[in-house]
Design a protein around this nucleic acid. Structure first.
Lengths: 120, 120
DNA sequence: ATAATTAATCGTATAATTGCGATGAACTAT
DNA sequence: ATAGTTCATCGCAATTATACGATTAATTAT
């Protein structure tokens, strides 16, 4: 979760908007997959073409430290999990949160929400 | 689409990774919804509680210029569309791209992809 | 012990995002 | 014409993200 308290409750003049936790979670997951390299990493992990950081650095043309940074972002978002297997670290999709993301994005973009648009 | 050519084809030593257009599109849509205010705006537009910028500025406690900036981000991502209705501007969900996003995220997070994980 | 391997973290530079007030453009109403 | 309304855009400041090389930590192999 990357968003600070300032977003949790916002005040201005008379109105107060409180973001539901769901909005914050969605935003942070969306942020995690808002970079093509991180999407690529998830695709590679999901397809089981590789699991170790080292293999990722061979496939994705970026510095090891950069890959590691992106892995951390995905880890923080809960989309992947790491298992230390010295001297390597094995990364996998976090299946539970993968399913949650599926439900969350699925219900967010669900067409039924748009049923009542009168104006366009 | 926010990502430059530098991402489209990346080279490093021997390897070359080319991002599929789909990865770029997903990343840019994810970026668009990576902020709770923009999620809020989409929810408001989807539920038809409002359509005009002015109404949004009453509900969301941020400066009008900030809301306008967020609307532009959603517009650039293709998630909403605007119709000038002087002196107001009416915003709506872009239904076509909403459906595309539904399919795209739905198939990205689809559980079947994870069938073959041997390592965890 | 020593060297080698793997990956996280640190420091740094650059770029992008976010938020705001002020201004400007387009149009309406008087 | 003049004033008012609505919203986009500009300019600025502060924060955050991105990428890299260098270093460090943890572990294995010799």
């Amino acid at each position: 979760m990357n968003y600070k308290k300032e977003y949790a409750i916002m005040k201005r003049s008379l109105s107060v908007v409180e973001y539901r936790g769901e909005e914050m979670v969605m935003a942070s997951i969306a942020k995690a997959i808002s970079h093509p390299v991180r999407i690529k990493i998830l695709e590679l992990l999901a397809s089981q073409q590789c699991c170790f950081t080292g293999e990722l650095t061979e496939i994705i043309p970026m510095a090891q430290s950069t890959i590691s940074q992106h892995l951390k972002a995905l880890l923080d978002a809960g989309l992947i999990q790491g298992e230390i297997n010295p001297p390597k670290v094995r990364y996998c999709i976090n299946v539970e949160n993968w399913h949650k993301a599926h439900v969350m994005f699925g219900s967010f973009f669900v067409p039924d929400r748009l049923s009542g648009c009168q104006c366009c």
